[in-house]
Design a protein around this nucleic acid. Structure first.
Length: 489
RNA sequence: CGGGGCGUAGCGCAGUCUGGUUAGCGCACUUGACUGGGGGUCAAGGGGCCGGAAGUUCGAAUCUUCUCGCCCCGACCA
């Protein structure tokens, strides 16, 4: 890690040689430090980061509701006995539970666990709420915080406490539940790509990687700028596992008692980490316009002449109003100080565009314009600038997506030689590798042992990753399709 | 829990090996002036139980022992 000292510290001193260092720089200097802090593994979200989260929340919530879901809230403290009811679930989560054993100064007879996820409490209530096929489907979402006591935390990507939404649905048939699982997976995938400008691979988790207690887990996997994979959202087919554990039964049209078929799905504040790690550069955050708390910053160039300055200020304020009235979130930065200082500050924060106005521009009826994701500034006519700005935001949104997608494509390769595979995975270069796999846990475990790579997902059809059958690159046994291997956060 | 590193001003560090007046530097902060088209200049300021405890010494940020905390790499996990 590069130590910085003296005068340079107030500057972004980037251009790290390795991506581990780059991550550090993003955390300390530019990106993540603008949105988050961490104390004892627990996350602090700064205003700028929270504003992004609110934007993510708003849109997802809208989409959930548009697909028939409603919000509810369940308790943070879960009786320990609840967690223990589903065997695989308890086994998966026990190591990372925070447990409350004392409350009100008394040792509790039955400890509470702080929810790592809410399948169990919700299962408990669903058993009371569901009697008939007429009660189904039950489509509930919860916005909440959860706690998982990880041994090692990474800011935003893995913190002890995080905010998320968790959907929990109950259905009369497996087909219906399966449909819901994929509906949400696609909702997540489209949100990641259209709103976050973060390309993802939609796929199924391997047996080893799936959610504890699920029959099957589906995921959207993104590639960060350092080539590592980030699981950005999951959607689980819970089968009847929790139904059986919590006795969630309904009477079907034939009058028979059946267990419900459940799903659960969630995305978390990890998305903010993904956003930063996908787009930001050494100068700080770059936030796609659709989620950016601030689109434009207007900086005045003042001179000695007070009359001129007043004219500049008036022009800035007028533009600020015009932009805001047209959906471009703009702010006039009229504080005393050098323009350069303001430029850098707002670049670090990830403001999408910067507009400079001085006496010279007034005379020529132009503004100085620079987009956060582009190098050069340009002179743009003041007349019609609002429409120009709107078009620029749209273009920035898509160009961020295209850039991220291109990066992923350049860092994804097909391999059929295990030696090559291991060599690559052991090296500093992180890539996605599409390779054939025989479908066994043993092979997966061997690969992890050999080089640390894991199966990120088995891509669903129609994304251009399915190129048919082959032979496992480790064992030579038959393989149905290539799967995505990578090193992961 | 293993391996490595670090605790000195709000932030980042130097000083520690080789003990010696009042503990330094950059940034940030305060006040004022000049400035202003990419991180300004000058002047004057404020801010420290040198992580904690015990010890060695005439004298400890510096040496010894213990202790607490943080960061990175692993193991775990998404």
């Amino acid at each position: 890690m590069n130590k910085k000292s003296g005068a340079d510290l107030s500057r972004i001193t980037p251009r790290s040689t390795s991506y581990a260092d780059w991550y550090q720089d993003i955390v300390r200097e530019g990106g993540l430090a603008e949105v988050a802090g961490i104390v004892k593994g627990c996350m602090v979200i700064k205003p700028n980061g929270y504003a992004i989260w609110e934007n993510i929340q708003r849109e997802l919530d809208r989409q959930f509701k548009a697909t028939g879901h409603v919000n509810a809230y369940f308790p943070m403290l879960i009786p320990e006995s609840f967690i223990k009811k589903e065997a695989e679930h308890v086994e998966g989560f026990s190591p990372e539970l925070a447990v409350v054993t004392v409350a009100g100064g008394e040792q509790l007879e039955e400890p509470y666990v702080i929810r790592p996820t809410s399948e169990t409490v919700i299962g408990h209530f669903y058993s009371q709420w569901i009697q008939s096929w007429r009660d189904l489907p039950l489509l509930i979402n919860q916005w909440a915080n959860v706690m998982r006591w990880e041994l090692r935390t990474r800011m935003f990507l893995r913190t002890s406490e995080f905010l998320w939404q968790e959907g929990h649905t109950a259905h009369a048939t497996h087909d219906e539940a399966q449909e819901e699982v994929l509906r949400i997976l696609n909702l997540y995938g489209d949100f990641a790509e259209e709103w976050m400008a973060m390309p993802v691979i939609r796929g199924k988790k391997s047996e080893t990687e799936k959610f504890a207690g699920a029959d099957a887990s589906y995921t959207i996997e993104a590639m960060m700028q350092d080539g590592k994979a980030l699981q950005a959202g999951t959607s689980h087919d819970l089968g009847q596992n929790f139904g059986k554990a919590f006795d969630v039964k309904f009477q079907n049209k034939d009058g028979d008692l059946e267990y419900v078929w459940q799903t659960s799905w969630g995305v978390s504040t990890r998305l903010i980490g993904g956003l930063v790690m996908t787009h930001s550069d050494d100068d700080g955050l770059i936030i796609p316009p659709k989620l950016a708390p601030q689109h434009a910053i207007i900086v005045p160039f003042y001179r000695k002449n007070e009359e001129e300055n007043n004219a500049v200020k008036a022009a800035c304020e007028k533009l600020e109003q015009d932009l805001n009235a047209n959906g471009v979130i703009a702010k006039f930065d009229g504080r005393d100080g050098r323009p350069g200082a303001k430029f850098y500050e707002n670049e670090r924060k990830g403001v999408c565009m910067r507009i400079g106005i001085g006496p010279r521009d007034l005379k020529n009826e132009v503004v100085e314009y620079k987009r956060r994701d582009q190098e050069n500034k340009q002179s743009v006519s003041m007349n019609g600038f609002v429409d120009f700005a709107k078009a620029e935001l749209a273009s920035m949104q898509s160009s961020l997506f295209e850039a991220a997608k291109k990066r992923r494509e350049e860092n994804t390769l097909h391999l059929d030689s295990y030696d090559e595979f291991v060599e690559l995975m052991k090296s500093d270069e992180n890539k996605f590798v599409l390779a054939h796999w025989d479908g066994t846990k043993e092979t997966e475990a061997k690969v992890k042992q050999d080089c640390g790579a894991t199966i990120r997902c088995i891509p669903l059809a129609g994304q251009g990753f399915d190129d048919g059958e082959g032979v496992c690159l480790v064992t030579g046994n038959p393989s149905q399709q290539r799967v995505v291997w990578a090193k992961a956060y």
